[in-house]
Amino acid sequence: MEAAEVEFLAEKQLVTVIPNFSLDKVYLIGGDLGPFNPGLPVQVPLWLAVNLKQRQKCRIVPPEWMDVGKLEEIRDNERREETFTQMPNPHYMELAKLLLNHASDNIPKADEIRTLVKDMWDTRIAKLRLSADSFVREQEAHAKLDNLTLMEINTIGTFLTESLNHMYKLRTSLQYSEDGPSQEH
């Protein structure tokens, strides 16, 4: 899967916006939205929030966890633990990226948050590389991946599964060749 498709899935997440227009309830196929009243917070999916923001029709309220203090705590926790800790949102990376790119004026200390999220991401990816390495080396047949987010899995996913498949092919054809020379590769 491509990163853009993971982002597509993340855009379903609900965020709170404060609109500057009024509109009755909208009946979308995926559920009802609104009603929209100027100055009154309302929950909408991220794709709509970003679009409204781009058209300067709303202000986005950053999610509760998008806060320097909270993120610092999560980052330190992530560095301390050897396993993956639970993230404040299963799509934290995509949310942070989209909101910081399109609505940085609505997020206090946007630059610091950008750095913190990047730090968390880097720590986690480093752990992920380590565990992938030991998974391959130990020739495990199963791994539990709790607390990993879709974006993180996707970063390593295709590469890891493809290489495991190749190694499997090499190994099984080695076994065949011991039995007899009938093999294609």
């Binding site: 199963h142 791994a143 539990k144």
Partner: peptide, 9 residues
């Protein structure tokens, strides 16, 4: 467990 994530054949 429900909600858990795995890597498996």
């Amino acid at each position: 467990a429900a909600g858990s994530q795995h890597l498996i054949r």
